[in-house]
Amino acid sequence: MAYAIVDDAMHIQFQNGDVYVYTPAATGRLHLKVMRQLARAGAGLSTYISRQIRDRYSLKYKREVLEESEDAAPAAAQAATVKRRKVAPSPSS
């Protein structure tokens, strides 16, 4: 698992290569705070996501599509790789 903290969001790449983007609007500020702490500690993040967060993410980048679009133009690659979700504010934000 790899992660990046970008502004107020987290980008997390799981073992299968898919990248999920977690934002305060989708996940909740408190959950993001806990996720950042777990990521920095190096333990428990995957378990926390599977038990507490589940499918409350903003975007999902599929590994297969990322690999196919590496040679594409940047705008086309971005358009091809993003699975957008409509996000309602989380009650814990």
Rank of each mutant, 00 (worst) to 15 (best):
E64N: 00
G17A: 02
I5L: 13
I53D: 04
D8H: 12
A77P: 09
Y20D: 02
V65D: 08
D18S: 08
A41C: 11
I49Y: 06
R84V: 10
T81D: 00
M35P: 10
G28D: 02
P74C: 11
M10L: 15
Q78W: 11
Y22R: 01
R40T: 12
I12G: 05
I5Q: 15
K60Y: 03
R85T: 04
V65G: 04
Y3E: 07
M10D: 03
R36W: 01
I53A: 07
R56S: 08
Q37V: 01
V82Y: 08
R54A: 07
D55A: 09
A26G: 14
R63D: 12
Q37A: 14
L32R: 06
V87Q: 12
L66H: 00
D18F: 03
R54E: 12
A9Q: 14
R29W: 03
L45T: 05
Y57S: 04
Q52F: 11
L66T: 05
A76G: 11
A39T: 09
S93A: 15
R51G: 11
D55K: 09
Y61D: 05
I49T: 09
M35C: 12
T23W: 02
I53F: 06
S92P: 00
D18M: 04
L38R: 03
A75L: 14
A88I: 08
V65I: 09
V34T: 12
N16S: 03
N16G: 00
I53Q: 02
L38F: 05
V19F: 03
V19S: 01
P24Y: 09
Q37E: 15
L59S: 06
Y48T: 01
M1V: 11
H31V: 13
S46E: 09
L38Q: 05
A4R: 15
A77N: 09
T47H: 06
K60T: 01
D18P: 03
G28K: 05
G42A: 10
H31W: 08
